[in-house]
Amino acid sequence: MVVRRGSRCGGSRVVTSVLTTADTERAARFGFIISKQVGNAVIRNTVRRRLKAVCAELLSEVPQGTDVVIRALPASATASFADLRVDVQRCIRRLAQPVVA
């Protein structure tokens, strides 16, 4: 649902989709899509672990009740941790703006 209905921001290594819900009591949630086009299981798991670490760093910047899905593109297999952080950080800062009531 996040990928279909949320706002999307693309880069050369990842595509980030963000959907803000009305449930502000719930902590932000993150999901990852890493297909076999990225690489074998070892590479996919490395990319997933890096993305999880990036999201843990950015958790304080994401408002509560927000769902974030990050789809890794094949270029993410050769990207460094810093490169992935830059892509994800740029998209989250652009898309996950807190809702002002």
Rank of each mutant, 00 (worst) to 15 (best):
A96Q: 06
A56S: 09
T46W: 12
K52T: 14
E57N: 02
R94A: 12
S7D: 12
R26Q: 08
R49A: 15
T16A: 08
I34E: 04
A27G: 12
P63V: 11
S7K: 15
R8P: 07
Q97R: 15
R44Y: 14
A28M: 07
F32V: 05
L51I: 10
C91H: 13
S80I: 10
C91D: 07
P98K: 03
E57C: 04
L51S: 12
V38Q: 04
R5I: 06
P63W: 02
S7I: 08
D67Y: 09
A96R: 05
L58S: 09
E61K: 08
L84E: 09
C91S: 14
R93E: 10
A56C: 01
E57W: 00
I70N: 08
S12F: 04
V47T: 09
D87R: 02
C55P: 00
V42P: 03
A27R: 13
T21E: 05
R93Y: 07
K52G: 10
N40W: 00
G11K: 04
V18K: 06
Q64K: 11
T46P: 00
L73M: 13
V54L: 09
R49Y: 15
A72L: 03
V86R: 12
V3T: 15
V15Y: 04
A22F: 05
S17M: 07
A75D: 13
T24N: 01
R5G: 13
F81C: 04
C91R: 08
N45V: 13
